[in-house]
Simulated assay, not measured.
Amino acid sequence: MNYSYFPGCTLKNKALDLDKYARASAEALGFTLEEIPEWQCCGGEYPLAKDEIATKLPSVRALANARDAKQDLVTLCSACYNVIKQVNDDMQNDENVILKVNNYLAHDEIEYHGETKVLHYLEVLRDVIGWDKVKAAVKKPFTGKKIGAYYGCLLLRPGKVLQLDDPENPQLLEDFIKAIGATPVIYSQRNECCGAYTMFEDASIPKSRTEKILANAEDMGADFLVTSCPLCKYNLTKNKGNSKLDVIYFTELLAEALGLKEEK
């Protein structure tokens, strides 16, 4: 199985592990991520202004590229997934956006109407590979480890558009944790925002939010947290304070469970 792959900017610098281990694990599980040529930054934030068109163009170009390759589009970063899937929804349902975007892209001979299916890597594991197959491929299970899933907000909301999981009671990462042999820890802050987009305006907001998230997970017995969001990992790590919890990308855990991670 081949998928068009949109890595996004952060996976090329600050989140190299999220990308590296995803590629290795994909090959081991029987699918390939084919990086889209000459992709551009998705912007990292979905523009809410109705007249904001230009910042949606990179996402549309990536979507059109995947369509032309006759492949679904897979991404890993929660922010990229959020932006690209919302833009794809616009290109299916918002006539104003459809008209203006296609007018912009006409000189590139691109016309797009939301034909591409957008998937998060975790969806491929759940819906295509299946948790049973993932579990069967595990060589080094995390037996005895208690892992807290941290979703944040970008992976789940807006729920009607993303449709990845129940935004109030998600199970996707918990099922992943079970598949690699560990025990998921349920805690109330697992799908609360870490305050990522407020860090430049008021650093006290992400600090207080992340302290609450980490304390809650620690109180419930988590050994560490797992996430797919570089923004969340940055905030949770930077504002760690006295917390002993590490925050690890799910792809790194997957690669380790599959016996692919090199020994340090």
Rank of each mutant, 00 (worst) to 15 (best):
G259I: 07
M1Y: 13
E201F: 10
L172G: 07
Y81C: 05
D246P: 00
L162C: 07
G44H: 04
T116P: 05
K117A: 10
S243I: 05
V87M: 00
F176H: 07
K240S: 11
L236P: 00
D132T: 14
S4L: 02
T10H: 12
E45N: 13
C194F: 06
E45L: 10
L214G: 03
S59Y: 05
D246H: 04
D175V: 01
L63F: 06
A137K: 07
S188G: 10
E174F: 11
C153R: 08
A49N: 14
G152H: 04
L99D: 15
C232Y: 04
C41T: 07
K70E: 13
K160V: 12
P58F: 05
K261R: 15
F250D: 09
L162W: 07
S4P: 01
K212W: 09
Q40R: 14
M1R: 13
A136L: 00
T227P: 01
K12M: 14
L231P: 01
G30M: 09
A196C: 14
D17S: 13
A196L: 10
E252T: 15
T183R: 01
I248W: 08
G144Q: 01
P7C: 06
E109N: 15
N2C: 13
D127E: 13
L214E: 03
I248K: 10
A54F: 07
S204N: 10
S204R: 09
P230I: 11
C41W: 01
L155G: 05
T75D: 04
Q40G: 11
D94F: 06
Y151K: 02
E174S: 12
Y249R: 03
L225D: 03
L154N: 09
P230Y: 02
I110T: 08
W131F: 08
N13R: 11
W39S: 03
Y150A: 02
L33M: 08
E52S: 12
L172I: 10
K20I: 11
L125S: 04
K56Y: 13
S4M: 04
L18W: 12
G181I: 00
A222S: 06
C9G: 07
D165L: 02
D132W: 05
A149V: 05
N93H: 14
P37M: 04
F200Q: 13
G181M: 03
L258Q: 08
K133P: 08
A137G: 06
A136M: 02
D108Q: 13
E27D: 14
N102D: 06
G130C: 11
A64W: 00
K233V: 12
G241C: 02
C77Q: 02
V128Y: 01
K117N: 12
A149L: 04
G8E: 05
D246E: 11
P167I: 00
N13E: 14
V101Q: 06
R61A: 04
I53K: 02
G44C: 08
C194A: 12
N2G: 13
N96L: 10
E27K: 13
F224V: 01
H107K: 15
N88T: 11
T10P: 09
L18P: 03
L236A: 10
L48H: 15
T55Y: 09
E262F: 06
D108K: 12
N169M: 10
